[in-house]
């Protein structure tokens, strides 16, 4: 029995299919779900945390159905949304004690313990309003850990944090996995997912397009990544055996089966277009490339549908 199992998990908002027949089995690992904005990541998390009813299909947490046994599920999970919601007028300890009381965890020992785990022991009696962003996020993790959940859901846990803060969060997440916890995390940061997740699932338009270890996904893409530094926005020069994956004001990124063939052709093509190339880099593909290849550029679709967006928000 896996910690998280879904079968055909689907959620519609009117015409929009936010999550489309998701099949997942996740157990004792850090599982990252990657996807562009609006791809269905948060909707998935909301269904798995019993905050939103699936339209079709089912999901089980530690063997309990998220609809029929919602209370059971909630005893076994913790959910940290991306909003960074800690009470700034309460101390760190009060913030955690509050959750301990709601989870029915007796005594102060466990509160002290989780504050210690999250390196907040020496600031526990300061108001959370005096905490940095990274500390607030760690405080939220302490709240989430107080009842020793089997499954932890984190929505964009490192958003808005500085480099040190991010690293600390991922280190803590890795420790939790060592303790046997299953961590389900959504993130936009591919490099972080690459380093911290045991497996990642790429979701696009509500559908799971790939699930694998980050290195396996990179390997699956194969070939090499050619990054050219240009002096201005270059035209999308087409070369046989190389595919343009990104075009930025001062950079072109190609993916090629064989860089040795593609690079000279690309340089020649750019030179004839009058573009000066100031730098060149050839490397194995990153998870970014994998992501773009799999999920594509989704935000160019139709106009932003405000009514649909509002409906989604309201039904949360």
């Amino acid at each position: 029995m896996a910690a998280i199992e879904t079968a055909g998990l689907t959620r519609r908002f009117g015409e929009l299919v936010a999550v489309d027949a998701l099949d997942l089995a996740i157990d004792r690992e850090v599982f990252g779900i990657l996807g562009p904005n609006g791809s269905g990541k948060t909707t998935t998390v909301l269904m798995l945390t019993t905050l939103l009813r699936p339209t079709a299909g089912s999901a089980r947490i530690a063997g309990h159905d998220v609809v029929r046994e919602a209370a059971r599920v909630r005893e076994r999970i913790s959910y940290v949304p991306q909003d960074m919601a800690v009470d700034i007028k309460l101390t760190g300890r009060e913030n955690v004690s509050f959750y301990a009381a709601l989870y029915g965890v007796a005594g102060h020992d466990r509160v002290d313990e989780v504050l210690g785990i999250m390196d907040l022991a020496d600031r526990a009696d300061d108001l959370a309003g005096t905490y940095s962003g990274g500390m607030r996020r760690r405080l939220e993790l302490a709240q989430a850990l107080v009842h020793e959940p089997g499954v932890l859901f984190l929505d964009e846990p490192t958003i808005g944090l500085d480099v040190a803060g991010r690293r600390a969060i991922w280190t803590h997440i890795a420790e939790l996995r060592e303790r046997g916890m299953t961590v389900f995390v959504t993130t936009h940061y591919m490099d972080e997912a690459d380093q911290a997740c045991d497996r990642v699932g790429v979701i696009a338009k509500g559908q799971l397009v790939a699930v694998d270890a980050p290195s396996a996904l990179r390997h699956r893409l194969g070939g090499e990544r050619i990054s050219l530094q240009t002096d201005r926005l270059a035209p999308p020069v087409a070369v046989e055996g190389a595919r343009l994956v990104r075009r930025e004001p001062d950079r072109l990124v190609y993916h090629a089966d064989d860089a040795a063939d593609a690079v000279p052709a690309l340089l020649a093509g750019l030179a004839s277009a009058g573009v000066r190339v100031s730098g060149l880099e050839v490397a194995a593909p990153t998870l970014d490339d994998v992501f773009l290849a799999l999920a594509g550029r989704q935000d160019e679709g139709g106009a932003f549908d405000y009514r649909q967006f509002r409906n989604m928000i309201r039904r949360r």
Partner: peptide, 13 residues
Amino acid sequence: ILGFLNKFLALPS
């Protein structure tokens, strides 16, 4: 608005 409600709703109480 601040996300507290969603956290509370995911609690077993």
